[in-house]
């Protein structure tokens, strides 16, 4: 094909600004693909593209509302992800010395910047203990809306399972890792 028909050449002739924009987009797409960093609006699609093994045991996070286990797949994919991911972050913070797991990344990414800016970036990116303290109440309200009923008790347990002949079997008794009892009003 004649170079004049090439996409980037035609784009350059039409608009220098758009050409630069597309060129930058291509550059960062290649960079993030190489680094395997997911950054919006670039798309690094490498999920389900690696070899996987089935672990011998897994642990599930189970939500018990008023004593009954919440059926997670009955929720929408988004609701399920929101509940599980936010709780996992909260639980990680609570059990791992109450520090934000992004701290080393912030330190690494800002290491060449002046101290004043480093502190400012850390304040904006990292969560403080006060941010985390308000989470249980938010979770309670979120679950109340999804559950369509008042919640008297919310209990979150870790349930260990093992794979026997590719079937999941509960191993031991679940361990309660979070409990919230709503006071009577």
């Amino acid at each position: 094909m004649h170079p004049e028909k090439w996409y980037l050449v035609r784009l350059f002739k039409n608009s220098k600004v758009l050409f630069l924009l597309v060129l930058l987009f291509i550059f960062f797409q290649a960079y993030f693909n190489h680094k395997r960093i997911h950054t919006f609006p670039w798309f690094v699609w490498d999920m389900y593209s690696r070899t996987e093994t089935v672990p011998e045991t897994i642990t599930q996070t189970a939500f018990y509302i008023n004593g009954e286990r919440l059926n997670m797949p009955e929720l929408s994919i988004w609701e399920e992800a929101t509940i599980l991911h936010t709780f996992q972050r909260y639980y990680h913070w609570k059990t791992e010395g109450k520090s934000d797991p992004l701290q080393p990344v912030v330190e690494s990414r800002t290491r060449f910047l002046p101290k004043k800016i480093r502190v400012w970036v850390a304040e904006r990116i990292l969560n403080t203990p006060d941010d985390m303290k308000g989470y249980p109440q938010w979770l309670y309200h979120y679950l109340t809306r999804i559950h369509h009923q008042p919640i008297r008790t919310l209990e979150i347990k870790r349930v260990p399972y093992s794979y026997i002949n590719k079937q999941l079997k509960a191993e031991n008794q679940p361990v309660t890792i979070f409990k919230m009892v709503q006071k009577k009003q």
């Binding site: 950054t39 972050r89 992004l102 990344v105 969560n127 941010d131 985390m132 303290k133 308000g134």
Partner: peptide, 8 residues
């Protein structure tokens, strides 16, 4: 109350 920007 808390955000999760991850590495993005």
């Amino acid at each position: 109350t808390f955000h999760s920007p991850d590495l993005d």
